[in-house]
Design a protein around this nucleic acid. Structure first.
Lengths: 203, 203
DNA sequence: TATACTTTTGACCATCCGGTTAAACCAACT
DNA sequence: AGTTGGTTTAACCGGATGGTCAAAAGTATA
């Protein structure tokens, strides 16, 4: 593919990402990563000193895949309703391309919550921007009040959780893989529709 | 506490449940379970032949904690709106008492999706009941159409995901533990409010 | 070609971990 | 007290696993 694929360090990262995101830190084996990369196990330690170091490298990479783009949308200077639509679209689009990331990220964060703190706080997330924007929309009569925490929680939950619970939902609703992909595609519309309709309406 | 606590088998199950749900199958150590139970490691193998067997025992137990009650509510003969309220309340209440279960269940299911199939299908879940109920509510003019899959996905997502993403949401919104517990409590109202308002309104 | 360097490898090591075993412990019964 | 049967333990085993090392292979430079 690209030139990156001929660079040993990147081959390793790619293999490690695949194995770690699929099996988690505890379930991943250095030997399996080496096999996946088509190299000797010792070479892993030559480029990355330890399993922890290698994991850290790909975990940061994954966090940067998952959070920054959505935060950028939420912080961008567009209307609240447009943000809700864009986040739904972008998040579902990204997770369709990286279906393992959701479970991986939250499992690993639960294994070691401290790791998170610094990393995404300085991705430019400022929660007050959303709070102020909601206040303004309420003042302008475009929506009814809701705490920013709940609005964002509703939005992210509905986007991400179907990827985490995929086998469960598929089993419950009797969907096959194709049907579920179609279902996920529909959610790009359903989620903003649900949220926006709810906040535009007197409860 | 109860008489159960003096029974070795139950002491083991309790310890195993704590360690497994906290660390996952791969991260759990038989020695740690033994320590937690205050017994010898060999005794684990005396009561449960292997780590797999012990895990299977507590996994079934956990599935029966997580799914049946919610399925029972969804299948019960009450109005759709009442179901939505009851599921929100019950799910959040249960997860407040067992905060580790959400991540644990979905991580382990992703590790081995087949395990799930039989288990909760015969918990009495019949998705058609919800589909029919929605059709009737639509026909009666009480709500606008929405696929049952999306309605249920929205409901479960908004209830469960805040437990999975707890550290992330806490970080983003700058909440401490007490504030987050309060936030979760509020969601018992917010979630049915959001869903019901949305489906009662022309989009 | 000789030299110096980085990259890659196979073989190896120490430790961890799930699992086994034989013996000790203990309660019940005779 | 002695026997029996279930329970608990300390010690041990073998394989898996993260990690190391010295030598081989490859590459660039003179």
């Amino acid at each position: 593919m690209t030139g990156l694929d001929t660079n040993t360090e990147d081959i390793i990262l790619k293999a490690a990402r695949k194995v770690f995101t699929h099996k988690g830190f505890d379930g991943a084996r250095m030997q399996e990563i080496a096999d996946e990369a088509g190299i000797n196990k010792a070479l892993l330690h030559y480029y990355f000193r330890s399993k922890d170091k290698l994991f850290e490298a790909i975990f940061v990479e994954v966090l940067n895949t998952v959070f920054p783009k959505i935060i950028a949308v939420l912080m961008s200077p567009v209307s609240l309703f447009e943000k809700i639509e864009k986040v739904s679209f972008n998040y579902i689009e990204m997770l369709k391309k990286n279906p393992d990331l959701a479970i991986f990220v939250f499992h690993e964060i639960s294994r070691n919550p401290i790791r998170l703190v610094g990393n995404f706080k300085n991705a430019g997330a400022d929660f007050n921007i959303i709070k102020i924007q909601i206040e303004e929309e309420v003042k302008a009569g475009n929506m009814y009040p809701i705490k920013a925490e709940h609005l964002i929680a509703n939005l992210i939950s509905m986007c991400v959780f179907p990827f985490i619970a995929r086998p469960v939902f598929m089993g419950m609703a009797g969907m096959d893989n194709d049907a579920y992909d179609q279902f996920l595609e529909e959610r790009k519309q359903i989620i903003p529709q649900t949220i926006i309709t709810a906040i535009k309406t007197r409860k």
